[in-house]
């Protein structure tokens, strides 16, 4: 039986690494919110979407899209899955989908600034320019050999996610791209 009185302290994935500002661009760690992977069971996609709408006010996102808004968002996260960011999932969702807590599994950063698109163009093989990748668009892609999720959350801002253990490399790669861009003038 426990003799520990003190609670364990929490450390964020990018602790000590962020924020940084380089050449008008800011990279910061997102506020840690509950994150739950929702993977609908067979034939449950529509039912899940309804339950999600009822409980959290957003539909299950189509491929390459995010629904909801800052603080309560559902980001398409690959084949037959989406990541609920913000709300603790309503237990009713469990009838329709495998729900898996991933609140600690991913490092989540936010890149903001006039040339955020140009930074990402140096890191991901996906066109993220606003003419094709608008607010609410998301992509599962590769970022310097890492599995990544990139979502446009504003006209000049992106949410970028990689597995938590890659946080230092993610910050390093983003900083390098930001520095190179800033130095071009």
């Amino acid at each position: 039986m426990a003799d520990v009185l003190k609670d364990l302290t929490a450390t964020s994935p990018c602790a000590g690494l962020l924020p940084v500002t380089i050449g008008g661009l800011t990279l910061s760690e997102a506020v840690q919110l509950p994150m739950t992977l929702m993977a609908p069971f067979k034939g449950q996609e529509a039912a899940l979407s309804h339950a999600l709408e009822a409980a959290h006010g957003m539909s299950f996102p189509a491929p390459n899209r995010a629904t909801g808004k800052a603080g309560a968002r559902a980001v398409w996260f690959g084949r037959a899955q989406a990541l609920l960011i913000g709300p603790v999932p309503d237990p009713a969702l469990a009838a329709h989908a495998a729900l898996t807590d991933l609140s600690d599994g991913w490092a989540v950063v936010r890149l903001e600034g006039e040339r955020a698109e140009d930074v990402l163009a140096r890191l991901v093989p996906v066109d993220v320019r606003i003419r094709v990748f608008k607010r609410g668009h998301t992509a599962r892609t590769e970022l310097k050999h890492m599995m990544a999720s990139v979502t446009r959350v504003g006209t000049k801002s992106f949410q970028i996610m990689v597995f938590r253990s890659f946080a230092a490399t993610l910050v390093h790669d983003l900083k390098t791209a930001m520095e190179g861009l800033a130095a071009r003038g």
């Binding site: 069971f41 037959a80 899955q81 989908a97 898996t100 597995f163």
Partner: peptide, 12 residues
């Protein structure tokens, strides 16, 4: 098969 899985290596 009706089964879903995901990596939780970094979660724990």
């Amino acid at each position: 098969l009706d089964v879903r899985f995901t990596s939780v290596t970094d979660q724990w």
